[in-house]
Design a protein around this nucleic acid. Sequence first.
DNA 1: TAGATTGTTAATCGATTAACAATC
DNA 2: TAGATTGTTAATCGATTAACAATC
Lengths: 209, 209
Amino acid sequence: MRKIPKPTIRRLAIYYRCLERLEQQGEENISSKLLAQMVHIKDSQVRKDLSYFGSFGRRGIGYNIQKLLSEIRKILGIHKSWRVVIIGAGNIGQAIARFKHMEKHNFQVIGVFDTDKRKIGKQITNNLVVSDINSLESFIVHNQAEIAVIATPAEAAQSVAERLEKAGIRGIICFAPITLDCNIPVEYVDITVFFKTLVHSVVSQTHNV
Amino acid sequence: MRKIPKPTIRRLAIYYRCLERLEQQGEENISSKLLAQMVHIKDSQVRKDLSYFGSFGRRGIGYNIQKLLSEIRKILGIHKSWRVVIIGAGNIGQAIARFKHMEKHNFQVIGVFDTDKRKIGKQITNNLVVSDINSLESFIVHNQAEIAVIATPAEAAQSVAERLEKAGIRGIICFAPITLDCNIPVEYVDITVFFKTLVHSVVSQTHNV
DNA sequence: TAGATTGTTAATCGATTAACAATC
DNA sequence: TAGATTGTTAATCGATTAACAATC
């Protein structure tokens, strides 16, 4: 199989959310041209991205929305539900735990952990209570959690990552501002990095105009 | 000025957080080799990134941490403080409003807005109360807010973006799962997209091993 | 001086885009 | 048939990496 560009995967997830919207609006088909317009890219990019995985469209007509949704689900691996644990019950950890879109997108938060005695026992949602991090490994094994969210301070993140990997977690979303050493896939979401890159655009835009 | 690759800007923000840590640990200098190791990239990448903006190192010695921090601050535009408003007081909006790292990194959240009467008036932090979105424009103008966070549902995001732009906001962080039509810089942070790309890595890793 | 490390150039690698034959 | 649109190839563009002279 040809190597798939990483940006292609990200865009598939973005096409997916457009297609969901179009489906809701009762549309049947969509052309690469229109889909491209919705996300501000070139239509050839859309076709190229999809072509890595197969031929999903019909010439002269476009792509059937239902079908494309189902194909992208399979490509991304979101046709099944994933069990998620969250480490760190601070602002970010709690927000993710309560985040409605998670469940809707087949990510099931099944556990939230913290070291802080004052947070342990706290009710986060109807069926989520903050657990002691001591029980992390046994919980992961018993409940077959697959994905973990690291929402701890940076100092704790590396050792948490190692525990997660050992316990059998298969992928990590890391909100902690640190690069992890580990052998499973990690997606980094450092919120402040987005603010900093944004501000750079703002500043340099002014210079150039 | 040569065109700066967008990934370079993101990496500068990441070098920055490493340098902060190194500074705290009392280090004086750092080589591109060591810095590269910390973030899992090549040392030539580090040097290249910095070289777009000047010559900040000393051959045989490396980069002075204090100096490099100060240079990156200037490059990114984070040497000054930025005033931020948040639109949408749901899980994400509230988490950002309470997020300690914001203040620490010179992003000052000065207002939180929502349409929901039940949320308006709610105390978010010691000095933040949810305001009615009706007062958005006047607030932005009076308080000279520069950056906005859109943490509304997708359906509301576009019209909010237009109001923000008109009111003089200069950059947007968009958590809503939608691509905005607007003429100011936008950084997109769709949390579920990160989960989806992660899951794709998890799934395809299994296939290839 | 010898070893370390930068800054920069040129080579390589990877991603995007244009163009167009195929076909609905 | 004529118009629309895909799927794919080749060309272009952009980003990363290796290599090395300069120099601390």
